[in-house]
Design a protein around this nucleic acid. Structure first.
Lengths: 226, 226
DNA sequence: GGCAAATCTTAGCGAATTCTTAGACCGTGT
DNA sequence: ACACGGTCTAAGAATTCGCTAAGATTTGCC
């Protein structure tokens, strides 16, 4: 995804026994992944245990070993590779069993190619990168840790409100956020209007005067101030 | 593992504006979660930013702010709470957009209760491994031996509870563990809430003041302190 | 049972966070 | 230059939150 500019693409393990659908699905996925195809659960389990995979797509009804059992076995072995079950068996109990076996998602055939790719993006998202960081000049905001880190190694701790305000402003660099907007999103309607100024002041004091730009008569803005 | 008790249940944020379906869904989920209901996207966003949620279920078509936009805003703020979109809008492009906005799963109404619960289990599942040693600053925790060893050769003996607490915090450096989380994992539901503070105090006294960071109003955190 | 270690409770104090207020300061248009 | 509205800053009040010490209770062990 963003920021990852290696030419290595994520490796996807496809386990599908249907001689027609297997290669077809592999080709579809090949647009975004390096796909390897296994045609039975035993092989899939072996590859899942030994290889280094970004994600797995597993058919439910497989020879030798059921797809759900395969995922269950992997999970028991401590393998947490995200997995999506793709199958013709679409009854609700089967879905529930598949998900509780350790699958991260469950789709029934026939499936839409775009939706499959979107669901794969969804279940791999938290594993690849997941920066959870917002760049602000020389600073990096870590909303989860409620702190700002400078490229020089300094760090400043922020309060909850300060983090909220900064995260909102930094979410769209260059955009001007009006006071009513900020007020509605971060404070109670009957708070004094001056609160915003106060927190902007706190942030400028803690981090640097120029982090947040005032646009007179309009609101506040982050970024785009070279 | 003991210490898992059902009184402190995972907190679920439900954002649903339908006056009939909202409470109904809430009641359904209440079997497994502590449910809070918001009826518009603005409120949902605020709660999502400020509260500590195990998972979110979000309706797509919401007043004030669309459900997908709400999730997008949360993701941009670094909030990675797993989210499932539950909606009447079931066309494939809508699913793709919802998932790419940062949702972890997408279900269309009418939905099956069991499947919803299974999918929620799937997106909240976390796989935790148990390494033999955990590095904490200059210290090394040996959970098996219930002691901390410093690189200088000192060592400090810990009690069982101290070890459990420290191991949990150290298992994911940088992550903030909330009091309810720690409470649910390490103590009995009807223990006094102050217990956590006490053990944090013990650890800081035995090892070093700065091993565990307090994130005011949020919880405790290990690592990530230059 | 009796001892010691471990676990948990309680409560007061200090610290952090949030929000208010009021006056100084700045920018813009006339 | 002047006036006016917008913005900045400092100080502090109210509230919530966390730290700590001391003791009560439970557990494990001989």
């Amino acid at each position: 995804m963003e920021g990852m500019h290696t030419n290595e693409r994520p490796r996807l393990l496809l386990v599908e026994d249907d001689p027609a659908l297997g290669p077809l699905t592999a080709e579809l996925l090949a647009g975004d992944y390096d796909v390897e195809l296994a045609t039975d659960g035993q092989t899939g389990l072996h590859l899942g245990l030994t290889g280094n995979w970004a994600v797995m797509v597993v058919d439910r009804g497989l020879p030798v070993m059921d797809g759900a059992d395969m995922i269950r076995a992997l999970r028991r072995s401590g393998i947490s590779t995200p997995a999506l079950i793709l199958t013709a068996l679409g009854s609700t109990p089967e879905k529930i069993e598949g998900l509780d076996a350790g699958a991260n998602d469950y789709m029934t055939k026939p499936f839409d190619a775009g939706e499959l790719l979107a669901r794969l993006r969804a279940i791999t998202r938290r594993f690849d990168s997941a920066p959870a960081q917002l760049a602000i000049g020389e600073w990096m905001l870590e909303p989860a840790g409620r702190m700002m880190r400078s490229v020089y190694g300094d760090h400043v701790e922020l309060t909850a409100k300060e983090t909220e305000l900064l995260a909102m402003l930094a979410s769209e660099p260059g955009r001007i956020f009006t006071r009513p907007e900020l007020m509605a999103a971060l404070f109670h309607p009957d708070d004094s209007p001056g609160v915003i100024d106060t927190y902007v002041h706190y942030l400028r004091k803690k981090v640097s005067k120029s982090v947040i730009r005032t646009v007179h008569g309009a609101g506040y803005q982050i970024g785009d101030a070279s």
